[in-house]
Simulated scan of single mutants.
Amino acid sequence: MVEYPEELPDNIYERVIDLSVQGNLFLDSGDALSAVNVWCEALALLPSPKDNWEACLWLNASLGEAYRVEGQLEEAKACLLDALNCPDGHVNPFVLLRLGQTLVDLGDENAGVDYLLRAYMLEGEEIFEEDAQYLQLLRNRKLVD
C-alpha cells in the first residue's frame, strides 16, 4: 500500500490556494465559467489519488456551485458527488445542501430530500436562508417543523 503525505507540498498548496481565490473572485463577479477553468486547473495539481486531499473537497464543492450557477446541473451533480467522497465530504453541510438541491432540480426529489435533510440536521434552518423553497420541501414532507 502506498502512503501519502498528510499535507500537500508547499508549492502545490500555494498554487491551489491562489487559483481558488481567483475562482472565488470570478464567481463573485458573475463569471462562473472562468471560475470553473481555474478550479479545474487547481484540481489537476493535486497528486493522485485526488480524493485523499482536503483541497479536493472544496474545489469540487466550488465547481458544483459554479456549474449550478450556470444551470449545468449534471456537471454540478458529478462534482458534488466527487466532493462527497473526499475527506469529510459526507458531513459537509454545504456539499450536502448543494447536492440535495441539485438532485431535486434534476427531478430526483427523493434522493435530494435525503441530502437536504442531512444538511438540515448538521446546520439547521440557517443553511436554507437563501433557498427557502428547499426547506419548505422538507416541511411539506413533515420531516422538519
Score class of each variant (00 low, 15 high):
residue 44 A to C: 07
residue 33 L to D: 12
residue 42 A to Q: 07
residue 102 T to E: 06
residue 131 D to L: 12
residue 66 A to F: 03
residue 135 L to C: 06
residue 38 V to T: 14
residue 89 G to Y: 05
residue 36 V to W: 05
residue 114 D to K: 11
residue 56 C to A: 14
residue 32 A to I: 05
residue 26 F to P: 02
residue 55 A to N: 15
residue 97 L to H: 03
residue 75 E to V: 00
residue 88 D to I: 13
residue 75 E to N: 11
residue 32 A to D: 11
residue 4 Y to P: 00
residue 22 Q to E: 13
residue 104 V to P: 04
residue 126 E to H: 13
residue 122 L to T: 06
residue 126 E to N: 13
residue 82 D to L: 15
residue 9 P to C: 00
residue 45 L to D: 10
residue 91 V to F: 04
residue 45 L to C: 09
residue 36 V to S: 09
residue 105 D to N: 06
residue 29 S to T: 11
residue 70 E to L: 15
residue 9 P to S: 10
residue 50 K to C: 07
residue 128 F to M: 13
residue 78 A to C: 01
residue 11 N to W: 09
residue 110 N to A: 10
residue 11 N to T: 10
residue 81 L to F: 06
residue 24 N to Q: 12
residue 106 L to Q: 06
residue 60 N to L: 06
residue 77 K to G: 05
residue 137 L to P: 09
residue 26 F to H: 14
residue 83 A to Y: 02
residue 70 E to C: 09
residue 98 R to I: 09
residue 101 Q to F: 02
residue 65 E to A: 12
residue 102 T to P: 03
residue 5 P to I: 03
residue 27 L to Y: 14
residue 76 A to P: 00
residue 110 N to K: 12
residue 63 L to Q: 01
residue 8 L to V: 10
residue 40 C to T: 14
residue 123 E to A: 08
residue 98 R to F: 13
residue 128 F to Q: 10
residue 124 G to I: 06
residue 105 D to V: 05
residue 46 L to E: 11
residue 68 R to G: 01
residue 62 S to L: 10
residue 20 S to P: 00
residue 73 L to T: 01
residue 114 D to Q: 08
residue 39 W to R: 12
residue 80 L to T: 06
residue 11 N to E: 14
residue 134 Y to S: 03
residue 134 Y to C: 04
residue 51 D to C: 06
residue 118 R to T: 07
residue 44 A to Y: 11
residue 44 A to W: 12
residue 123 E to F: 02
residue 33 L to E: 14
residue 60 N to D: 01
residue 10 D to R: 14
residue 66 A to T: 10
residue 139 R to L: 08
residue 83 A to G: 02
residue 71 G to T: 03
residue 120 Y to S: 09
residue 108 D to W: 01
residue 64 G to P: 01
residue 80 L to H: 02
residue 97 L to W: 02
residue 8 L to S: 08
residue 29 S to V: 05
residue 72 Q to P: 01
residue 69 V to C: 03
residue 96 L to C: 02
residue 83 A to M: 01
residue 12 I to E: 03
residue 93 P to R: 00
residue 100 G to E: 03
residue 121 M to E: 15
residue 134 Y to L: 04
residue 139 R to K: 13
residue 79 C to Q: 04
residue 22 Q to T: 05
